[in-house]
Design a protein around this nucleic acid. Structure first.
Lengths: 248, 248
DNA sequence: ATGGCAATTATGTATATACATATTGAAACG
DNA sequence: CGTTTCAATATGTATATACATAATTGCCAT
């Protein structure tokens, strides 16, 4: 109703009201503005705040409850839950530094590089909705004589057009990007995988051997910048993350 | 409306219709009755099957879509997705929550438990210098009927003596410890590994298949509390960590 | 005081309805 | 024959409404 129209007039995003309520409240909880134990506004209060129906508010709050951020009690209201979670901090790793920390000589070798219009898979990896130019780079990191990690990277050229003019021959795209594009957000996915023929060949291991795969998506000011996949032979690599519990 | 009344007359369960539709469809998918790619009935068909409104069906299907079990396409219908459960968050590593977030029933089963004096390996894992009593527990976490993760845990009984009197038969030691011992620091090590005979057997996968291994050491007030190793079949698991720089 | 009994209140679940939006398939057209 | 247009269709989101359910508050009678 009126709120939707207001949004349209703003010419702003077309995210749903549902999503907006959700992220609003999540933001206030995660930022600490609403501390654990705090009673968040009743549904009917949010109803007037967002000028929408109770069903819409209810759906959003139910979802937050299911995600474990809040706890709902009949007749009492909804309360921010104590996070029994740990703030995971995996540092963005620079492979050169990892290798040199092992006391081994580091070398990077580009295998393949290709500029193209993004296909469906590219867009899925980067989180793009519209087509555009992307740069695909594949390269190999060496520790001494042995392959240490295979890198497969996609760069969103509409976010970083100047990358299109680079040849990442002996310098990996990671360090180059870090110096140029301030990243505001990153997401890591970590999993195990069996090496297929191509990967086994590049890393000089047996096909089917277990590998550790670390994928990272990076955003700068809400815009997807790059998606990179590091593939490590299992024996050569362990990720370490250390943390202390987050305070409420 | 009438269906609810019918249920009441049946004198049957008091689960909501929403829940019933959800578990019904989930059942048919997980049992394989509806294979990946299969088009599940349109909302309006389910509406007549369950004799309820479209909103109710819609909510259930949206939830299944969010859980990743089905994919919805406008004008085409809803389709069973190929199962690729990647919904774990590094932040809160309670496997029960991970499994339930996938919409699957969770179960824990203890395999082995043993109290002993610490040997050299135990001390290395826990980071102890002197010998003392430790508790060794091995158990299996299930998602539905399938093994989801194998857990191998060492508990330092000089830090948590009361754990020696517990039988971790149906409750994993993790949740038990969290409620009792405030941890001050933790360290994660993540790597890939090929399943050996014993692990393959426990997880019901092929020997040599890649696994993701997450090891965690926890301290409470400088004292080592526990070392735990989670072993996930590679297909079933991806860790996800999301963060912003310098804000923690 | 105190134990029990409403009344009140907030959430839980469901309905009927409306319009928006994306996609398909077929008809119309150059 | 290919292209454009358009209507049909399934999902997406929101509304207003209704009644159920659980929990708290306060009142009343003992």
């Amino acid at each position: 109703m009126s709120l939707i129209e207001a949004d349209d007039i703003d010419g702003a995003e077309s995210i749903s009201l549902h999503q907006r309520i959700l992220s609003d409240i999540r933001e206030r909880i995660l930022s600490g503005a609403w501390a654990p134990g705090h009673r968040i506004p009743f549904e009917h209060e949010l109803t007037t705040e967002y000028n929408c129906s109770r069903m819409t508010v209810n759906k959003a709050l139910s979802q937050l409850a299911k995600a474990g951020l809040i706890e709902r009690r009949r007749r009492s209201g909804s309360f921010v839950r104590r996070p029994q979670s740990q703030a995971a901090v995996l540092e963005l790793h620079d492979i050169r530094i990892e290798v040199e920390a092992l006391g081994l000589p580091y070398r990077y070798e580009r295998l393949e590089q290709l500029k193209r219009r993004s296909n469906a898979e590219d867009r899925a990896l980067l989180g793009l909705s519209a087509t555009g130019s992307v740069l695909w780079v594949e390269g190999l990191h060496f520790a001494g004589e042995r392959p240490f990690a295979l890198e497969q990277r996609l760069i969103n050229l509409s976010a970083v057009p100047e990358a299109g003019d680079e040849e990442f021959l002996e310098i990996a795209a990671g360090p180059w990007l870090i110096g140029r594009v301030p990243w505001s957000e990153a997401e890591h996915r970590i999993r195990a995988m069996a090496a297929d023929e191509a990967i086994a060949d590049a890393l000089d291991i047996d096909p089917g051997a277990p590998c550790l795969v670390v994928e990272r998506r990076t955003w700068s000011a809400e815009r997807p910048v790059t998606h990179v996949r590091f593939i490590y032979p299992a024996e050569s690599h362990t990720l370490v993350a250390r943390f202390t519990p987050s305070q409420g």
